[in-house]
Amino acid sequence: MDEIVSKMCWLKYFCCLHLLIILTTLSFSFPSISYVIKQGLIMSSKSEPLSSEYSNSQLIGLSLLRVLIGWHFLYEGVAKLSNPHWSSAAFLLDTKWALSGIANSLVSNPSTLNIVDHLNMWGLTAIGLSLMCGLFSRWGSLAGALLLLLYYLFHPPLVGLEYSKPTEGSYLLIDKNLVEACALFVLAKFPTGHITGLDRFLQRLRR
């Protein structure tokens, strides 16, 4: 039994290492991604200028991405809010890998489960609204990226992990949550809310 447990531990570390290597290789092999990451790092270390200049097509692309992701978040949130039977418990109980212990303790206590449920429902809705309207959109993007990263970490599609809830696609290490999280990270670093969103008025009022 102990042997199996220690083997499983090794498997976890192995998978983690694997993931890191793949992500690093990807980021170096695609100049654009490495550029995005570098730019993001530079921008987050500086005071992040907001008056970034975009060409029309860039602005349209980024704004469209923001609205589409916002739409997705908003409907996920509203659909959960309008379903009295929805609970995150089934998702959390199906958690695998490093965070399964945390997930189990969240589920085992009805009040923490209730908090998690509400954070999810309202969090998704608020992030959705923020992205769609372009209001506090940089915070919305970051919060959305973080939430998606959490979903990813609770259900990482690692080799050897099987989930009882069927996925709607085929994934190997990378799933749609991670891709969407990455897109939101890009949106946080290339914000548009202050141009095509309510942030524009906020910025003007502050000035």
Binding site: L50, S55, S63, T196, Q203, R204
Partner: peptide, 25 residues
């Protein structure tokens, strides 16, 4: 130019351009 128009006035005022762009989505 796809930036917020530099407005040096003290009172914030929104141009037609601001309103159209700000409410674009």
């Amino acid at each position: 130019l796809n930036t917020v128009s530099p407005d040096s006035q003290d009172e914030p005022s929104f141009s037609r351009r601001d309103i159209i762009k700000g409410l674009a989505t």
